[in-house]
């Protein structure tokens, strides 16, 4: 698997990363090196191995349906560049 500059441009846009035109080619090369490295793993036959979902033998922890959080409006808004009347305020986004 490899990526071309168009793919890199599209992925960057989807990830909201600003990459200038001249940076696309080197970025594609770098990504392809990483992809090739990862592809070496395909040489190992894993057809009889379950996918590993965690490095430790553990199960998903579940929580009781109890309200134990919230009501910290001030803390939630503390880092917001702009807040008013308890809302986050962002540049207008309308369909």
């Amino acid at each position: 698997m490899s990526v071309d500059t168009d793919t890199v441009r599209r992925i960057a846009k989807l990830a909201r990363l600003a990459i200038s035109g001249e940076a696309l080619e080197p970025m594609a090369k770098e990504l392809n090196v990483i992809l090739q490295w990862a592809e070496q793993l395909n040489e190992v036959d894993t057809s009889a191995v379950d996918p590993m979902t965690s490095a430790v033998q553990t199960k998903l922890k579940l929580r009781q349906d109890v309200v134990s959080d919230g009501h910290i409006q001030e803390a939630v808004l503390q880092n917001a560049p702009l807040a008013e009347h308890g809302f986050f305020v962002v540049p207008k986004i309308v369909e």
């Binding site: 929580r63 349906d65 109890v66 309200v67 134990s68 959080d69 919230g70 009501h71 910290i72 409006q73 803390a75 939630v76 808004l77 009347h85 308890g86 809302f87 986050f88």
Partner: peptide, 27 residues
Amino acid sequence: SSKAKLFSGSPADYGGEPNEHVSLVDA
């Protein structure tokens, strides 16, 4: 219909003052 949210302990009820039913997980 639950008391708390899917992945946090904030209240799941409708309404409330803005950003009052929000934990640091939800934010």
